[in-house]
Computed example of a mutant assay.
Amino acid sequence: MGKTKKLIELDDRAIAILEKQAKLQKRSLKNYIEYTLEDEALRFSEPSEAYKKMMDDMIKRDENGTLETTSWESIKAKYGR
């Protein structure tokens, strides 16, 4: 997996905000920006094969009537929320 350099321009206010967030995570500004962009890009990527297989299995069990579920109301009642 290669890497590509890109020049980006951000306003001073955005930089100040990002610097504060980077410090909170004990990261450099550059590392924080790279991490944040890569993390966001992964949100747009296709799900993994393992996830697809798990979801296909759940759909199949739902169609067969063998999928066991718990209602949100039941979970709230169990944990006192």
Score class of each variant (00 low, 15 high):
residue 45 S to Y: 07
residue 72 W to V: 03
residue 71 S to A: 09
residue 13 R to E: 10
residue 10 L to A: 01
residue 15 I to A: 03
residue 15 I to D: 00
residue 59 I to S: 05
residue 20 K to N: 11
residue 36 T to P: 06
residue 56 D to V: 01
residue 76 K to S: 03
residue 49 E to L: 11
residue 42 L to T: 01
residue 42 L to C: 06
residue 56 D to I: 02
residue 18 L to H: 07
residue 31 N to W: 12
residue 48 S to T: 15
residue 57 D to E: 14
residue 39 D to N: 12
residue 37 L to H: 02
residue 43 R to C: 05
residue 17 I to C: 02
residue 50 A to E: 10
residue 56 D to W: 05
residue 26 K to G: 13
residue 75 I to S: 04
residue 12 D to A: 07
residue 45 S to G: 11
residue 54 M to D: 04
residue 9 E to H: 06
residue 80 G to I: 06
residue 11 D to H: 05
residue 52 K to C: 05
residue 73 E to R: 13
residue 4 T to F: 03
residue 23 K to C: 00
residue 36 T to Y: 06
residue 72 W to T: 10
residue 40 E to D: 11
residue 71 S to D: 15
residue 57 D to T: 12
residue 47 P to L: 12
residue 36 T to D: 07
residue 68 E to Q: 13
residue 55 M to T: 13
residue 60 K to P: 12
residue 26 K to Y: 12
residue 43 R to G: 04
residue 77 A to N: 11
residue 72 W to D: 06
residue 7 L to H: 04
residue 23 K to E: 01
residue 78 K to A: 01
residue 51 Y to N: 03
residue 59 I to C: 05
residue 49 E to N: 14
residue 74 S to G: 06
residue 22 A to G: 07
residue 21 Q to M: 01
residue 1 M to Q: 08
residue 19 E to Y: 00
residue 10 L to C: 02
residue 3 K to A: 00
